[in-house]
Design a protein around this nucleic acid. Structure first.
Lengths: 349, 349
DNA sequence: ATGAAAGCGCTAACAA
DNA sequence: TTGTTAGCGCTTTCAT
């Protein structure tokens, strides 16, 4: 009458009973084994195994107020980036014994806010969040959250969170200089969408390099800056406008690879050669960049590092007790040039 | 002396006290509002809001033995598939109020088994799992898990789980027939890795179509089946072997798009034209398939449907009480042809 | 080194 | 309709 072992999994009490110890001892075996006698440990562990016992994490979470889950909120990213970010976060999370809970924001869902509410329901110990544009994030709401947050790729907003960025400015600056050094002029840029901080910084880097050469976006009254929206088609359209200029740009720097590929198409349609007549450079180093013909020269984004750094910092913040949990910190990860065929500079080096 | 409102979030008791009701009433407001008076509901909700109260899910999980989290275990997928699967699962999970916990299996981690253990720690109500090859999965371990499991894209193993597959056989069959109908002969196939069930089924579909035309993989003593490993390079190498045959195949069906793209390169290197001299078809319909020149004809995989169906079935199984939780069910999702340029059949239709 | 017991926040009988 | 109370499975003082 006493062995009504529920077929569902065993609890700490079952183990304690069967091993003739108290539940406290069983608990200790798992949490502070150094305080319990070796033989006891062994006995408990054996019993546990025979009962197929595993500590129920939810119960643990209740007492400890810690779930060991970290939330990851991502916008509508390119599949490749998405994958890479998750992978890298997962990699370090796993190492530290954390699980990851994901929200891939679909366009039909109020991504950030709605998920943040869930976060506040206590499922996660911390959050890694990437928001596409500053306006999309609600700082008042964010500030209600009492758990550590790591913000990815957000413009400098003066807000006090751990922020990890990629060096858009420098990447653009270096690429532009590279193009300039090889004598290309005029150089045009196909910009990203208005209000997108990545786009803004890339433009600034571009302009800074031009300025060093005493150039600007306007030469002889011709304007060499076109705006796109990061999508392929906008690159195509922007390129068409650029091609109809009285003086064609000798090189075009697209603010991302997708637009660069769009530009490829426009150029091909006009029967021009890349890089012989027009050099092209992109930004992001997405997978297909290297499959283009000619292979696209671009700026590499350190996605893996971004994810790993985010996870490391978040976990550090979580595990740093009380004080200074909401650390303020800004990390900028370096970008690097990937010189391939489309800029025509490969063998001049 | 009594208002030591901890700055950390409020509990159900705080709300009850402040609203002058019992905790049971507060709980009811959230779980069965129809059993409580409207005015009371309002009062409770207001108080809750003023206290910034949210039910602590971990506590709820403890009593209910239900976390509303579903686990997703994926192998080392292509970024695009990965993204798509997660997105689609997330989409329906969200709808039903579930969260998703992910494990992206890195090669350095014993993916399945180790994560399954975590699953058994009670964090998740069910698991969606996709394993690349049958051998990689441990059924003995699986059978210890007491929660519903949905298996994705697994070969028919006779095991009793909910399984959702994609119709590899039929896709390959249809594509082969398509090629045959347009008079191509001989047709070669670049196969996937040994033991991979997707690959096997694709081969079977291919052979079935050939047989209908009274053909086989061997014509005049020449063998038209080459094995690859689903990676681009193996497609390239296989194609080179195919090109050195005494009688070149008129069409080549690669068991996936990556290998088809590898084949493109080999063909180009030999100075041959696609599809004029050799028609090519792939399988998977990955993104870059349409960026190739000529655009790759391929078989479309219903990834979104796969993820959504998986999530729907898993949740149904979770919510179906006790009886028949471990339903046995096998769903096969249809694949479809995507006729583009590389098969040269576009305008014959 | 080990045990007894209180409590984490919530739900669900059972009573009223 | 609402309140009381006993757990859910675990950790952690405080005793022993």
């Amino acid at each position: 009458m006493r062995d009504r072992q529920k077929s569902s999994s065993a609890t700490i009490r079952d183990v304690a009973r069967k091993a003739n110890v108290s539940v406290a001892t069983v608990s200790r075996v798992y949490n502070s084994p150094e305080t319990v006698r070796p033989e006891t440990i062994e006995k408990v562990l054996e019993t546990a195994q025979s009962l197929n016992y595993n500590p129920r994490l939810a119960a643990r979470a209740l007492t400890l107020k810690k779930t060991n889950i970290i939330g990851v909120i991502l916008p509508d990213l390119d599949g490749e980036f998405f994958h890479e970010i998750i992978r890298s976060i997962d990699l370090v999370a796993w190492q530290y014994g954390y699980y990851i809970m994901i929200s891939a924001s679909h366009s039909q869902r109020n991504e950030v806010d709605s998920f943040l509410r869930l976060m506040s329901q206590g499922w996660v110990d911390g959050v890694i969040m990437m928001v596409p544009v500053l306006g999309r994030i609600s700082f008042p709401l964010l500030s209600k959250i009492e758990i550590p947050i790591v913000l990815l790729n957000l413009p400098d907003s003066g807000e006090k969170y751990i922020q990890i960025n990629v060096d858009n400015y420098r990447g653009a600056y270096l690429m532009t200089r590279h193009l300039l050094e090889h004598g290309y002029q005029p150089i045009a840029m196909i910009q990203g969408p208005l209000g997108n901080s990545d786009a803004d910084l890339r433009e600034q880097g571009f302009l800074a390099a031009l300025k060093e050469y005493n150039l600007g976006i306007e030469i002889q009254g011709i304007h060499y800056l076109e705006r796109g929206d990061f999508k392929r088609r906008s690159g195509y359209l922007a390129m068409i406008r650029l091609l109809s200029l009285p003086v064609r740009p000798r090189a075009v720097f697209a603010a991302n690879d997708e637009m660069a590929i769009g530009a490829y198409n426009a150029i091909r349609e006009h029967g021009l050669q890349i890089p012989e007549q027009i050099a092209i450079a992109g930004f992001d180093d997405i997978n297909i960049a290297s499959y283009q013909r000619p292979k696209l020269t671009t700026v590499h984004l350190p996605i893996t590092e971004l994810g790993m750094t985010a996870a490391e910092n978040l976990i550090a913040a979580i595990e740093r007790k009380d004080e200074s949990r909401q650390e303020v910190k800004k990390i900028i990860l370096p970008t690097g040039l990937v010189i391939r065929e489309s800029c025509g500079c490969l063998n001049h080096n």
